[in-house]
């Protein structure tokens, strides 16, 4: 019983870890390593340089005179990370099944109604377990399929670069076969990248959509050098995971779709003024619940009511900014 509850709490724990990072436990009993305080400046600079944000890639103008690009992205992870951990807790897995059987169809339906494109980042194992998902997405002929690792695995715990690369290659091959097109974009599984990931993406010529240094496209620096990798950044504040999870399946920090979609809209308004990119990251298993799906519908209507908005897949955005910046393909 304790085991089941613990596993259910893992999601919560992952998010809380971020909070924990900011609020160490008080008291001298806390493990006091704080290793960074002992490093000389040059060591700090070298260490901090591994993967960093480079130049901004927002073009002078978006296609057809649009003032903003809007990329709706869906992390269709379902229960893949549970598979990665070999966690077969039956009731927890139903959350993923819900994503495939109810969440995704509702999301596709909303996208159909507005005729807007979207990008779905899918771990291979989620597609294997629910094989109707990719055909349903592909059938629309508007959407993109990108990678989310082999099984939404945490790359920081896959310590061998060759193993991480093999998992991503295998995932890419699987998605290519299932969708009929080789993926060109990657989202870090478990919302993480290892220190090897950017090098692997470079080899596989993928754009990335996992990092969070800006609200607009940028080029990733690898060890201080331009990597040629386009980053279409995500934001935890434009993600339904921290707030809108079902309480059993995640942190549910503010499970009020009304308040959270108000925040998404405020963010869009500011992005529209700044003229950059609005990239939303949603999970069909959470946003596809009955109490949430109409808010997605309304948000898309609101965005569509504004003149000069370019709805695009992440792939289209990445290709466009790359070409405008004169980066080789």
């Amino acid at each position: 019983m304790g085991y089941r509850v613990s596993i259910a709490s893992m999601w919560v724990a992952m998010l809380l870890a971020i909070v924990a990072a900011q609020q160490p436990q008080q008291g001298a009993t806390q493990e006091n390593t704080q290793p960074g305080r002992l490093w000389p400046e040059d060591q700090l600079l070298r260490f901090a340089r591994a993967v960093r944000a480079g130049r901004k890639l927002t073009p002078n103008r978006w296609p057809a005179g649009a003032r903003i690009a809007v990329a709706l992205t869906f992390t269709l992870n379902n229960s893949a990370s549970n598979f990665a951990r070999a966690d077969m807790t039956v009731d927890v897995l139903t959350g993923g099944e819900f994503g495939a059987r109810r969440g995704l169809p509702r999301v596709l339906d909303v996208l159909d109604r507005h005729r807007v494109p979207a990008t779905f980042f899918i771990p291979a194992t989620a597609a294997i377990v629910d094989p109707t998902m990719i055909p349903e997405i592909v059938k629309r002929q508007r959407h993109e399929v990108g990678t989310l690792g082999w099984s939404d695995e945490n790359p920081l715990q896959v310590t061998v670069a060759a193993e991480e690369e093999a998992l991503l290659l295998r995932a890419s091959d699987y998605l290519a076969k299932a969708s009929g097109k080789k993926p060109v974009g990657a989202r870090g599984p478990s919302m993480a990248l290892s220190l090897h990931t950017i090098g692997i993406l470079k080899k596989m010529r993928l754009y990335d959509s996992t990092l969070m240094a800006m609200d607009e496209p940028y080029e990733v620096l690898l060890d201080g050098q331009p990597s040629g990798i386009v980053e279409l950044p995500v934001s935890r504040m434009l993600d339904d995971f921290p707030t809108l999870t079902a309480p059993r399946f995640g942190p549910a920090a503010l499970p009020s779709p009304q308040l959270i979609f108000e925040t998404f809209r405020d963010d869009f308004d500011e992005a529209y003024q700044e003229g950059t990119l609005f990239l939303l990251t949603l999970h069909p298993q959470f946003v596809g619940m009955r109490s949430r799906i109409d808010f997605l519908d309304s948000l898309i209507s609101y965005i569509q009511s504004k003149p000069n908005v370019w709805f695009a897949t992440a792939e289209e955005v990445a290709r466009y900014v790359k070409q405008q910046a004169g980066m080789s393909n």
């Binding site: 390593t33 290793p35 260490f47 901090a48 990248l193």
Partner: peptide
């Protein structure tokens, strides 16, 4: 915060760079 803890994991660093 990440540097103090001795980590340079890319997503964590990018959140700090924001």
């Amino acid at each position: 915060l990440p540097l103090l803890r001795g980590t340079n994991a890319p997503v964590t660093i990018s959140e700090g760079e924001y």
